[in-house]
Amino acid sequence: MTARRPDRTKGRFHAVFWDWCARGELRLQRCSHCHHITWPVAPVCDSCGRPDLVWERMTGRGTVVGWNRFDQDYFGGLLPLPYDTLLVELEERQLFITNPLGFTIDDVSPGMPVKVAFIAVEDSAGPFMLPVFERY
């Protein structure tokens, strides 16, 4: 059985992000005017407000800059507790909230190198591929 996850945010721009994940690619929106990356998904550039965003493929490599472990059940038992999250700075300098794969926050150190991997999960809308990070 595929692991359940809390629901993705729906919407036509969000759908593009998850479609790329389904193909094993981590792509974020980069503005074709000011070259700023906007994340989370938005209809216009977070920096200059223009709508001309291009889905650029990230290298998938990054470093750990923060972490959390959730002991509080915020999702009605959907996720087994406790579970860990990471804050990764991608090589493109964008910060990205994710989960560790194959290690826990007990193993992390500042600047630890990680790379993206995709795991098969599902939410109420169906199966999808979730970008998580493993040691690199």
Binding site: D7, G11, Y74
Partner: peptide, 28 residues
């Protein structure tokens, strides 16, 4: 349909986009 005003979506709390990774709450 948070990013699609035509679909009647309002403005969600920004951190809901991180829900699939379980990252949520002011405390977080």
């Amino acid at each position: 349909n948070a990013d699609d005003p035509d679909a009647g979506g309002g403005a969600p709390v920004t951190y809901y986009a991180f829900n699939p990774w379980g990252w949520t709450s002011q405390a977080a």
